[in-house]
């Protein structure tokens, strides 16, 4: 594996990767007041990581987010979602929105929905990146019956 693409691509990636991640986080956090949400934001977060993977190659990216790290974020996000939903039992039942609902349209509103969005964002971002990592292992023409 060579170490990624040309200098131009690497420089541009260095410039935009942070903004992509920031935008992903914004989409996740504003999911309850504007279009977007956990899945869309998580997909953007994954896209940022995938861009880094394409530009800098596998090794450099795996130092940022390894297979195990992606798995942990993935399962952790899903677990957080289930646990937050189950916390509703404190207020009467599964998925009961027990936090303050706030003023509709404000960032600090909608009770536990932003928390659920954050959990989904973590899960989807890590999950999609994990899928891409798993598929990127593939090299055309390599199959195990090959004696070489």
């Amino acid at each position: 594996m060579n170490s990624g693409m040309s200098l131009i691509v690497k420089t541009v990636t260095r410039l935009v990767a942070g903004f992509i991640t920031l935008f992903g986080i914004y989409i996740v956090l504003y999911g309850h007041v504007s279009p977007g949400g956990g899945f869309a934001g998580g997909a953007i977060l994954a896209a940022g990581l995938i861009l880094v993977l394409l530009a800098f190659g596998r090794e450099a990216t795996l130092r940022m987010m390894s297979h195990d790290g992606a798995l942990a974020w993935d399962c952790g996000g899903a677990l957080a979602f289930v646990l937050i939903a189950a916390l509703g039992y404190l207020a009467g039942g599964f998925f009961v929105n027990f936090l303050s609902h706030g003023e509709p349209g404000q960032l600090n509103s909608a009770g536990m929905i932003p928390l659920l969005n954050a959990a989904i964002g973590a899960k989807v971002g890590a999950g999609l990146f994990g899928v891409f990592l798993a598929l990127a292992v593939f090299r055309p023409g390599r199959h195990r019956e090959d004696p070489s």
């Binding site: 593939f138 199959h143 195990r144 019956e145 090959d146």
Partner: peptide
Amino acid sequence: IRLHEKFG
């Protein structure tokens, strides 16, 4: 991908 690895 796995099928291609096994069967070529």
